[in-house]
Design a protein around this nucleic acid. Structure first.
Length: 427
RNA sequence: GGAGAAAUACCCAAGUCUGGUUGAAGGGACCGGUCUUGAAAACCGGGAGGUCGGAAACGGCGCGGGGGUUCGAAUCCCUCUUUCUCCGCCA
């Protein structure tokens, strides 16, 4: 959610931003909000004045009562009670107007950073930089599902029976590898100075609507029947929600956290779940980084954060590249975002394993997360980035550490988490 | 799940029984000073409070959230949430 003052003072900027995001259908909203806001402020002013009058008279009654002038007090009482209806009506109007404004404001996209490349959809995303050589081995890399099968590491058939499509059993060394990667990711971020956190895996609807847009909510979140609870789609949801309504001391910033959680996603939408293997599933696990900082430090953190992910994957001998999200592909709450993509030697292309985003004050504004400054309270900047989401990270790992005989190399940093094994062999 | 207690500003905390000069005592933190090589401590002094509208003056809202009673609610009533204590149950 952007500051409504921006619409009051600079409608054109807001409209220009909507155009940049190819959401022209939202353009009329800006003028609608502008007009509603004028009406709202007018109603508020009238209401405020009337309430002031009421307050004044009411305290007069108190005064008269104390002096024992009961008759005079009663006369004033009579007078004040006549304001009641008018105030009630104005309040109804105020409430209705502010609700309509909020509804519209919620779908106005955040102002994107100047550096974001313009483009309508993900085909216009821009490669920024490659890290490591995208090696194409002289033997064929099997599909990760086949690699897992050879190692008796994946059972989707059983998962289909217990839970349906989009679920999986990981078994044996593959399951261990999955956990080992997460543990390594956790320690990797702890070594970077981040605070490890395990958050609630379910959150209330008011938190959900604070951290994501409505479209995202419908397409992603599983709702618990009969309760006001949703399964989190990422620990970012709980980690940002943690600060709902908080005023944070400037001296405590930046807050840098690395959280672990399982993630649940309905994956309703264009891609669907109809895909072989573990690339798109309803349930995965993720080590995340979440940062809350002063607005002025946001971009520095953004750049640090995606670099951490690059460093992490490179330490596991996985080539990666960064891909900048273009304006049309950027979620409404985001100011700027880039994907970290891992090299797939099987498909001979890169695929998404993580996403780094700076949200400006959008989440902070929705949830009321502020810091105290000399000049008053200021909304914080929030950022989030994937360290490792797996099984997707596991896919990248398996393909890039695969040997022709079906065995998997374990790079050095991961060995302590794998019982010091250097290689996983087919039995 | 049952029974109690509690929620007041950045933090702690008075006020709630007995509704009205309570934007809300008192601390702490904060800012200025004395002392000190510097800091801490101690002492002296200080104003500000969240949010919305307004250029400002000022005004509205606001004492966990929502609703109600009343001319008037931190204070009375209902409801929800959270925390703590006890009991029950259970990884």
């Amino acid at each position: 959610m952007i500051d409504i003052k921006l619409i009051r003072e600079n409608k054109d900027l807001v409209k220009e931003n909507i155009r940049k995001k190819f959401q022209d259908s939202k353009l009329p909203l800006v003028d609608e909000i502008y007009d509603l806001d004028i009406k709202y402020r007018d109603a508020k002013l009238k209401g405020d004045n009337l309430r002031a009058l009421k307050n004044e008279k009411s305290s007069l009654i108190g005064l008269l009562m104390r002096e024992g002038k009961k008759d005079e007090a009663n006369a004033v009482k009579e007078e004040v009670s006549q304001y009641g209806n008018e105030i009630l009506e104005l309040e109804k109007l105020e409430e209705e107007l502010s609700l309509r404004i909020k509804e519209k404001m919620m779908v106005i996209p955040n102002i994107i950073d100047d550096s974001v490349p313009l483009g309508e959809d993900d085909s216009k995303n821009v490669e920024i930089e490659k890290f490591g050589d995208p090696i194409i081995p002289d033997f064929e890399i099997p599909h990760h599902a086949d690699i897992c099968d050879k190692l008796s590491g994946l059972d989707k058939e059983s998962a289909g029976r217990t839970s349906g499509n989009g679920f999986y059993y990981l078994m044996g060394d593959i399951a261990r590898l999955h956990s080992a990667m997460l543990s390594y990711a956790r320690d990797f971020m702890i070594d970077k100075g981040f605070t490890y956190a395990i958050p609630p895996f379910m959150i209330r609807s008011d938190v959900v609507s604070g951290v994501m847009s409505f479209e995202e909510m419908d397409a992603m979140m599983y709702k618990i029947e009969g309760e006001d609870l949703y399964l989190i789609g990422t620990s970012e949801h709980s980690m940002i929600g943690k600060f709902k309504g908080q005023i944070i001391k400037e001296s405590e910033l930046p807050i840098t956290m690395t959280s672990y959680s399982p993630c649940f996603r309905k994956e309703v939408g264009s891609h669907g779940i109809e895909e072989r293997g573990l690339y798109r599933v309803h349930q995965f696990e993720k080590q995340e980084m979440v940062v809350l900082c002063k607005p002025s430090e946001g971009m520095d953190w953004y750049n640090k954060m995606w670099q951490f992910t690059v460093e992490f994957f490179r330490s596991l001998d996985i080539p990666v590249r960064t891909l900048e999200c273009c304006s049309g592909d950027l979620a409404d709450l985001k100011v700027k975002s880039c994907d970290v993509e891992a090299w797939s030697p099987r498909q001979k292309k890169y695929f998404e394993v993580g996403s780094c985003s700076i949200l400006g004050d959008a989440q902070a504004r929705r949830l009321g997360i502020r810091m105290k400054t000399d000049k008053g309270n200021e909304y914080l900047t929030t950022l989030n980035n994937t360290v490792l989401a797996t099984p997707r990270g596991l896919i990248a790992f398996l393909e890039n550490n695969y040997n022709e005989d079906g065995s998997i190399n374990i790079p050095k940093p991961l060995r302590p988490y794998m019982g010091n094994k250097e290689i996983i062999c087919v039995k």
